[in-house]
Amino acid sequence: MTSSVKELLIILISSSLVSNVVLSQFLGLCPFLGVSKKTNTAAGMGTAVIFVITLASAVSGIIYKYILQKFHVEYLQTIVFILVIAALVQFVEMFLRKAIPSLYEALGVYLPLITTNCAVLGVALTNVQKEYGILAGIVNGFATAVGFTISIIILAGLREKMEHNDFPESFKGMPAVLLTAGLMAIAFCGFSGLL
């Protein structure tokens, strides 16, 4: 199943902007709301997510095609994917700590937080559901993670701006952030005319 460049481009745009993983699919909400206080930590989290999701969609795509499909046990996908992803993140963490300490310094603290991030599993399952090939799956994973990074950095920027604003007592903290996210979601609805 080879995909043309045009198809890949469409996947790239639709997964990163049109159906944004956080703002229209609600996957990965926890880090989106929890790690978006400062732009630099948000960027760190975004980078780690791009790294992990791209890798995870490659590995899960290969496993699905060459193991699950070959032995006709596609129904095991949920169990296999979640275990593979959890193991993969642990492995990446150990590998980075040994091999590239500087990258580990930058991303290390975020990696354990991504293990059961629903976005990672969500991408792996979407790839199967939409019958993407391995390459298309990797592109979809990368684009989804880029969409996540874009939205978390924008949210962090907005939160830095509104930190000292005057809100009603009950709306301080999470409600204000959720309202901001809602307005961002409206803005991202505008991308739906793009394709």
């Binding site: 609600f26 009950s170 301080k172 409206i186």
Partner: peptide, 17 residues
């Protein structure tokens, strides 16, 4: 639509607060 979910949850957390 998606934004509505955020607004409903915002109202809910505000009520909780």
């Amino acid at each position: 639509l998606a934004p509505g979910a955020f607004f409903v949850l915002a109202a809910l957390t505000a009520f909780q607060n």
